[in-house]
Design a protein around this nucleic acid. Sequence first.
RNA 1: GCCCGGGUGGCGAAACUGGUAGACGCAGGAGACUUAAAAUCUCCAGCCGCAAGGCGUGCGGGUUCGAGUCCCGCCCCGGGUACCA
Length: 780
Amino acid sequence: MDRSYDPQAVETRAQAYWDAHGSFRADDEAGEKFYCLSMFAYPSGQMHMGHVRCYTLGDVIARYQRLKGRNVLQPVGWDAFGLPAENAAIKNQVPPAQWTHANIDAMRAQFKRLGFALDWSREFATCDPEYYRWEQWMFTRLFEKGLVERKTTVVNWDPVDQTVLANEQVENGRGWRSGALIERREMPQWTLKITDYAEELLAELDRMDGWPEQVRAMQRNWIGRSEGVEIEFDVRGPGVDAGERLAVYTTRPDTFLGCTYVAVAAEHPLARQVAARDEAVAAFRERCKAVRAAEADVATLEKEGVATDLVAIHPLTGAELPVWIANFVLMEYGSGAVMSVPGHDERDWEFARKYDLPIVQVIAPAEGSDATCDVETGAFTEKGVLVHSGAFDGLSSAQAFDAIADALEAQGRGRRRVNFRLRDWGVSRQRYWGCPIPMIHCADCGPVPVPEADLPVVLPTDVKFEGVASPLKTDAYAEWRRASCPKCGGAAERETDTFDTFMESSWYYARFPCADNDAAMLDGRAKAWTPVDHYVGGIEHAVLHLLYSRFYHKVLRDEGLVDSDEPFTRLLLLGMVLKDGRKMSKSAGNIVSPNELVEAHGADAVRTFMMFAAPPDQTVEWSDSGVEGSVRFLKRLWNQVHESVSAGAVPAVDPAALTAAQKELRRKAHETLAKADDDYGRRLAFNTVVSAVMELSNEIGRFEDDSEAGRAVVREALELAVLVLSPIAPHVCHELWFALGHETPLVEARWPAVDPAALERDAVELVVQVNGKVRARVEV
RNA sequence: GCCCGGGUGGCGAAACUGGUAGACGCAGGAGACUUAAAAUCUCCAGCCGCAAGGCGUGCGGGUUCGAGUCCCGCCCCGGGUACCA
């Protein structure tokens, strides 16, 4: 072995070895499978520290599982469609496809330099027609199955650029390119009925114990199942037909007698109707348009409203309640209208105070409760006992729920209903760089799916951006749009919208096992490898990507293409990588380039520090000097191995004939092995694996004993240190393993068993505490 | 706004099941080696205090023999909020 550690040379040799031996090509047939996957990357062109962290974590898991004897698949691909490519195209006049492929080439090289144990033979990009054709195919199947619907949803419309903007493209209410005030606009969109699976998506969460509880909680809340009552009010007023009804949904029917007004969304049909004859209402609706479609914007708005000349008739009391239009009522949730009970709902209370609407108390604190209720000073939102509710007085909130629901149902004015916060998945995007939606619009037959034989609908890639709008929608592509109706053969138009990029990322994991199949979306290999045993990615995907994928997996299952219920058995969501306490960004000027670090210190040192700096799920603070510490550590380990090997062969350790100091070092070595096994496999605490091996190395350094037994104990400790560290710093460990005399490569090694005898102690220290303070220590 | 996290020395962190707070590392200090420097090695180091001792895990309360860890109420920072991926 070389006298000194040269990371660049070591890493080049190790990578060449793995390449030449096809070390990471997964075998479809062999042994107990372990499918390990890091969320695929968007090819921005520059690998960043977040990628380094994510892929290193995945790699550590994959390499550890391999040492444990599993047949590991760790594939890699590219989430290649998306907005940044279009922005680059508009800015630099480069076609998105060209830009994307150049970026993929650049990033592939960067990934390879880090030595991840990836099976590159299965690589694909989602912008490959061979990939997205199956997405189109599945969509047409779901259309036939009735899981696809055309629905109206709200988007941000830029009236100058005549295009739809993403939420992040709206700054202070204006389009980021045009500067024009954006408008909320309703647009017909293709949606997938994820709500059909809401119950299953929710119920399954309870059984998914390989997922962090916080993520399951987020998904539970996102799905937002509630039990309540849908209530119908008669509406009276100018221009309202007799028998017209307004539906609201409430989870608190027990407060129903305290309802003093009703509020509808600005986009509600009743609001539209009133606006036609009432200028104030029309002006209010116009103002509401200037709010971004994002929920956070709507929810943080100052609550405002406008009165209408309509009244809603309380079905139980006959009272005439004013109908208001309010900016905080969401058309997307429930029926776009709410009953307002200011005495017992904070938002309703604020609104009532602001507009001088009556506030009445109908719930009193339950007997024995120490809560107080004064609806003059604030809403009382707890459950309790009914008051001022006529025949329902004295009932508990729970009893009143049923009594009032029954009364409404008996009158045909309401029904119990389960409601979900979850909305159906709008998959249409008015953009160019995405998977074309395989539909044809026929004037006579309506929308018709493209027949299987005509798939894929290929996205033209030699495009020029004239403005900001999708080239597919311009005159230049009139020919591309022209189609004949698959049903009647008449002249028809292709859909020009493309899919949400979450469509591609919802099933890519299932495609890796059979990425070479050009005759089917998935085959038996997908069934054999899925579900993914361990999925690694950013916490920012806790809800959307991970919920859409779960839904899509169930859809694939129901089509017979996979045979599991959930796509990802175990989930590791990592925190962000920060520098100087902030997110790395160009504007903050604190971007750290993985390339330069690897050039300067080697991939192993970068990987080691990344793992060492913090536990995986926590945000991590990047430190350049910290990497230097990792280099020192790897160098020390190298020197220790060199010294041990140079001193010559050693006999086998004879555990029965060791001195106290020898025993102690051997115990430390086996404790490290045991701890690392637990940290890798159960705790996912890779930071403490690194510190444990550092401690072991420190102890080896302090151990001075040239006897044969002493050198044998050191040799065993070094072997364990190298093996334990190898998932994290694979290159240097690969070479040290051979140096230690092994003839087969470390990637073929098996995780050794701990010698229980090595862990035994002759003495322990007992601590004596008085009132929680340490007062004495006793060696026993 | 709502949902989910996080806050421990100068810095990153450890403490896994309520039982020795600060392992391991960075930065720093002292020393060894060296003509010198780098590299390497050894030692020191939470804060206040000469010391005895006291104080210490964002803030305020509580439970407990004992709380970084459990409970209640706050503050600050981060992620998500359905068209960024």
